[in-house]
Each structure stands twice: as structure tokens, then as C-alpha cells.
Simulated scan of single mutants.
Amino acid sequence: MTTAARRPTLDEIAEARGRIAPYVARTPLVRLDLGFPDRQIFLKLETLSPIGAFKLRPALNAVLSRDPAALRQGVAVASSGNMAYGMAWAARLMGVPMVAYMYRGAPQTKVDGVRELGGEVRFVSQEIWWDYIIGAARPEAPELLINPVTDQAVLAGNGSIGMEIIEDLSDVDAVLTPYGGGSLTAGVASAVKTGSRPVSVFAVEDDSAAPVCAALAAGRIVTVKTRPSFIKSIGAPSLVPQLWPVVRELIDGAIAVSPADVTEAMRLLFRKAKIVAEGAGAASLAAAIARPDLKGNIVCVISGGNIDAAAYSVVLAGGIPSA
């Protein structure tokens, strides 16, 4: 069973940042002028990572912080795509084998990215994939299985994003992050909530599967009904129980946005800034636009841009890709 996670300390986040710095350049924080009189929108562009997504940070920190002896038989991760992509990049750096447990229907661009970096993709059902995430089951294989949500090195690696945000925008008022398993939100919030200035952090979900909103309303983890969606990296039938107590204490709320809201944000990013974002990557901007009650300096973490070309062409043409 996966052990309970804890909030990473600022020292752990700083150590992670230093560890991955030779391989991951600082990503820019840029202002997106939407003409709002009472709020400024800033974009944290994790799309400019070497793999096109923030997941290289946690994957690298998880691998580089391990004893090399633990990596001899390789590393493995359960992922819908970007964490697998990041882990394959990190494993190639270390010269060890890598296995990704993915479910069929994951974006082909992410599957291809793993394979091009030398990783092996093993497809499993979504039920087994989720069991691997929450620690209810483990693959019978020799590789070191790194949990993409609860691993402490993963959380600290994600915290490096929050540290950069605070350094670049000391008067930030709110940070919006897409919420999949929750490690991005937990890591970023752990960093931005360490100073004297109050900063609100919101988890952003696809309303096709919004377990954070449901858990906050119910006061406990619940299972929600889900609908098929083209947005693959966020949304689940429930929450990872080992991480939820940490997240619950860190976030100030959750915002659910529709696929229509997200595709409009994707088009806006392309039209205004020539930024290509996948669905999950644009969800934070969609949420910021949908919540005019959020005032001041708002940072949207644009978490990734790995989307299949066919799906992106549908978005640019004004549509919503099929699930």
C-alpha cells in the first residue's frame, strides 16, 4: 500500500530545484493582456519544458534523488502520458530501462514520446492503472515503481514551479493549477504558501470528472460519475486518499470547467500568444476567465502542450475533440 504523503518543506523544494536545474531551464511567467480592469492574468509556461510539460521536473527529481543501486533494474510509472514522458527522459539520462503503465486512449503523441526516448509502454485497463496510482496493486515486474502522485521527490519537484512563481511575481494573489492526481497542486501550493503574503490556490478540474469539487462539498472523499472527455490528464472518479489530506489543507477551493470552456481557452492561447496547450494545460486559464470574482494578480499554470495534431486541429476549427 502506498504510504501517506506529506507537504514538502521549502528546503526540500529548494534541493529539488538545484538537483534538476542542469536539465530543466526556468520557465517564463508572462502576462496575458485580456483587458480586465481588476485582475491581471499571468501564464506559467511549462509547455516550454524539454518534453512540453511540467512532469519532467518531478520525474527528474524522483530519479536523481534515488540511490543508483535502486535504479539498476529500471524505473516504472503509471501515467496517462506526461509523467511517463518525463520518466522516460530521466531514465535515458541515467542510462536505465524504463516502463510506462498507460491505459489505451492516452494521447498518441505521449505514447510516441515515451517510445522515442527508449521507454517501454505496457497498456493496462483504467481500473488497474488507477489501482497502481492509489497503491491498491503493483505490477509484478522488477523495475522500481515510482508513484506519480504521492512520492515525496515528485511533490518537491513540482514545488519548484511555485518557487519560481513567487520569485517572478512576489505580489501574486492567486495560483490556479490543473488537478489530476493532485501532486502539481500540492507541490505548487507548498511553495507559494510559505511567505507572509496570503496566496490563494485553486484546483482546476474538468466538469466531466470533478472529484475535488465533490469532496469539498461532501467534506470527504467521494466517488463521482464521470463522462468521456478529450481532456485526459485531469479528472478521475475519485481522489488519491494518501494525498488528499495534504491538498485539503493547502487549497482555497476548486473550480470545474467544461470542455467547451477549455477549448475556448486553448484557442485564446493560440490566438493571443501563439501558445499550444493541451486540454489540461489550458484548464487553469479557462477557470480564471470563468471566475471574475478572483481579483489581482492571477497565475495560471499552463501545465503542458502535448496534444495530438488531429485533436488540436478540431480545437482550432472551433470544435471539441471526441473523447
Rank of each mutant, 00 (worst) to 15 (best):
G162N: 11
A217M: 01
P198D: 12
T177P: 09
A209G: 13
E205L: 09
G162F: 10
L155A: 01
V172W: 03
A189R: 09
A218V: 00
A156N: 03
L184Y: 10
E164I: 12
D171C: 11
D207F: 10
D171F: 12
E167C: 09
G157I: 06
L169Q: 09
D168M: 14
A210L: 13
A203C: 01
A218F: 00
A186E: 02
S208R: 14
K193P: 10
A186H: 05
R197Y: 07
A174T: 15
V175D: 01
G159V: 02
G157T: 11
M163C: 08
V175N: 04
A217C: 00
N158H: 15
A156R: 02
T194A: 15
P198N: 11
I221Y: 08
Y179M: 14
A203T: 01
F202T: 08
G219E: 11
K193V: 08
D206T: 13
S190C: 12
G157C: 04
D173C: 07
Y179G: 04
V188S: 09
A186K: 10
C213L: 07
V175E: 05
D206I: 12
A209P: 12
A174H: 12
G195A: 13
S208K: 15
V212E: 04
A214K: 00
V204G: 02
I165G: 08
A156T: 06
A191G: 14
G180H: 05
A191P: 14
G162Q: 12
D171L: 13
V212W: 02
G187Y: 05
L184Q: 07
D173A: 04
A210H: 14
G219Y: 08
A209Y: 13
M163N: 03
A214N: 03
P198V: 14
G157V: 05
D173N: 15
G195H: 13
I166L: 15
I161S: 10
V172N: 06
T177G: 05
A186M: 02
K193D: 13
A156I: 01
A191M: 14
K193H: 14
A191E: 11
I166M: 15
D171S: 15
A156L: 06
D168H: 07
V154F: 08
I165T: 11
E164V: 11
D173H: 14
G157N: 03
G181A: 08
G181I: 00
A191N: 13
S208A: 15
L169M: 04
G187E: 03
V199M: 10
G181Y: 05
V172A: 12
V212T: 13
F202E: 06
L169C: 02
D168F: 00
S183E: 05
S170P: 01
L176G: 08
S183W: 04
V192W: 09
F202V: 00
E164R: 04
G157K: 00
P198R: 08
L169I: 03
G219S: 09
V154Y: 06
N158E: 12
T185S: 01
A214Q: 07
G180M: 05
L169Y: 01
P198Q: 09
V188F: 06
A191Q: 12
D207Q: 14
A203E: 00
E205R: 01
A210R: 10
S183M: 09
S183P: 06
P178H: 12
S196Q: 13
P211N: 05
D173Q: 10
S208Q: 15
G180C: 14
S200L: 09
S196W: 09
S190T: 06
L184T: 01
T185A: 05
E164L: 13
G219W: 08
A174N: 00
T185D: 03
G180T: 02
V172I: 09
L155M: 08
D207P: 03
